[in-house]
Design a protein around this nucleic acid. Structure first.
Length: 152
DNA sequence: GCCAACGTTGGC
DNA sequence: GCCAACGTTGGC
């Protein structure tokens, strides 16, 4: 059984076009426990909505697939990295990442405003006020509704 | 750039 | 374990 997820990235830092060009990439830099725990629960083959955040407009811009299960995020050990965390060690890594592979770039963005209009998506963490989780689960129903009904 | 909402830290 | 202070996220 596959699971479904949504992952946020600031397009200035890493966009769907970057992933398309690279084909696959590590999802590094997650420094939130809840988001980390969701990544640890991912399996190869799980599907991902690629979401552009902190831009105008924000929204889903395509899909990707998990191609490598969670493993330690080495940027947490790199003292020169923006994501360095002295509390993360080789023996006891605190942060993890998965690899994702590009699947599809949608012709146009499905904006957060549009997602919020759908009563079918009212339970999504994404559409909840104040939610700022960067990795979150999506139900199969939500995935199908978005890809079949709303996808641009 | 603003600021509401949230997560984390650290003193007690 | 509580909670104030602080830093960050992210939509607008």
């Amino acid at each position: 059984m596959i699971n479904y997820w949504l992952m946020k990235s600031e397009p200035d830092a890493f966009s769907i076009d970057d992933l398309k060009r690279l084909k696959h990439a590590p999802w590094d830099g997650v420094r939130n426990y809840q988001a980390r725990n969701f990544m640890k629960a991912m399996n190869e083959g799980d599907m991902v909505f690629f979401y552009h955040s902190s831009c105008s407009p924000a929204g889903i811009v395509g899909t990707a697939k998990v191609c490598k299960k969670a493993y330690p995020d080495h940027t947490s050990w790199d003292i020169n990295s923006h994501y360095f965390d002295p509390k993360s060690t080789q023996d006891s890594p605190r942060w993890f990442m998965v690899d994702v592979v590009f699947v599809e770039r949608w012709p146009s963005i499905l904006t957060l405003a549009e997602l919020k209009k759908s009563p079918e998506l009212a339970d999504m963490l994404l559409t909840k006020k104040g939610s700022r989780l960067s990795v979150m689960p999506i139900t199969q129903k939500e995935w199908e509704y978005i890809t079949v009904i709303l996808k641009k």
